[in-house]
Structure formats: structure tokens, C-alpha cells
Amino acid sequence: MHNKNNYIIIPTLLLVSLIFSSCENSSIEPENPTGKLRIEFNHYINGENIIFDSMAYVNDAGNNYLVNEIQYFISDVTLHKNDGSTIILNTWQDILYVDTDIDETNSYIFKDEISEDEYSKLSFTFGIVAEKNNSLMFVNPPESFMFWPELLGGGYHYMKLNGKWNNELNQPAPFNFHLGIGQIYYSFPDSISEYVQNHFIVELPEMALNIKDNETTTIKLIMNVDRWFNTPNIYDHNFWGGDIMQKQDAMQQAIENGHNVFSYIIK
């Protein structure tokens, strides 16, 4: 056996073992077949992509309006099965920031490995639940720019929807349709008796979402912006004015409408 071949075989084995032992093993096979989920965020008015800064839209209150930008958080995205079980997608990131001015925020692939299966529903929190909505948890822009003042309840805006409407004087008046923690005033504006957590759960209509092994399934999530103003409450900018952070009644109307704002397409 002491022939020349030993000089080749032994070092070759050594080579192979060293190569595979010297670096981190990154090829651990998952026990169960899993896939990924991507959400793409889209923003529509009247069933079509928004033309930003265009006074081309009319809400059910008869307000002509334009949209300049939309920034918001959704969190605790949850998949539901027919048997009632749920999976919260929260590996590394349980709060997603969406900004119509920043393309990178308009599509997320969850880190979660999702078991291959058929899921019947998707839900999420619009905004951030109280336990997680802590001031200074986002120190970096753009999320940090969403902070909600301490005096008004702290944490972060759930949403900034900024635009303009033609008011009763036919002036293009700015509106800041901002949602976050509301306040009940003992005497406005100096004395707050109570804060109101305005986050709410959005449950999308039943779906047949198939997560397949080693595949990424994409849901196109659509915010139908017109529905913030019309279903079930007809929201009149002339009545509520340009700002609502300190108007809980206006925010209440908005969150009731918010349940109907989102739709989806499975791609």
C-alpha cells in the first residue's frame, strides 16, 4: 500500500476535511419544508395607483383633494390557518415602516421561515400596540421622524397622510391626516384626562395563501386611500380641518374607516 497514490489520497482527504471544517457551516437543512412571504405595499385611490400631488380626487363629502405623501407603520403581521392556529411573523422585525417617498420601504420579505401550508387569512395591527409603542425605540430616520410628542401620548405616529383639499373658500388647504395615540381633554388644550390607544387590527378578507417549500409568495397589499374618507364614515375635511392629532373624535372616525382600507392580491 505504500505507493505514490497515498501521497495523493491522504492530502486530498485532509484538504476536503479542512475546507469543510474551517468555515462556518451554512448549509443546515431545515427540518420541515418552509417558504417565505413578501408583502408589497401599494397605494390606490378609486382602484388605481395614486397620482401624487394631483388635485384629481373627490371624496364622498365632496372635497376635492390631493395626496402628497403617506408614511405609516403596520406591525404583528399574522397568518391564520383554517384550524384557527396563527403564526405571527416577527423574526427580527415585527414593525414595518412604509413611506411612499422611499421605495425600499414598499416591499418587505419576512425573515420568518413559514411552514409549507395553505393559510386562510392575514391580519396585522395598523400602527403599533401600546406595549411596543415606546418613545425613542427608533432613533434613526425615517422612523424617528414619526415620533408622536410625549405630551400627546408619546411613541410614534401610526400614520401621516399629508395632502391638500379645496376648502370652502376654494383654497388648496393642507391636511395632515395623522393617526396615533389620542387624548381625552379635561380642558382643551392644557389638561388631558386620558389617552386613547387608537391602533387597530386589520383583517383582510379570506384568502388561499399557499406557502411552498423554498419559494417566496408575494402578497400585494393595497391601501385604498379613498376609503379612509368614506366607509363607513363620510369624512369631511371642511368639518375636521387640517389637523387631527388632538381631535380624538376625528381619529375615531378614521380608525373605523381604517378597517376597510386595505385589500390584497396574491401574486
Binding site: M146, P149, M245
Partner: peptide
């Protein structure tokens, strides 16, 4: 003044100029 600075019904400076949650006091 801080109340005015950080409320919409007040002076509403904070959306552009920051505050507690954005201590740079600008969004740049």
C-alpha cells in the same frame, strides 16, 4: 413653549424641527 412647539393646535414646529423623539431638531 415646549407644549406649543410639539402640538398641532399650538405652533406645530415639531413635524419639521424635531423634539424629544428627534433630538437633532431638524429632519434635514
Amino acid at each position: 413653549g415646549y407644549v406649543l412647539f410639539t402640538t398641532e393646535e399650538g405652533a406645530d414646529c415639531f413635524h419639521c424641527h424635531g423634539g424629544w423623539g428627534n433630538p437633532l431638531f431638524t429632519t434635514h
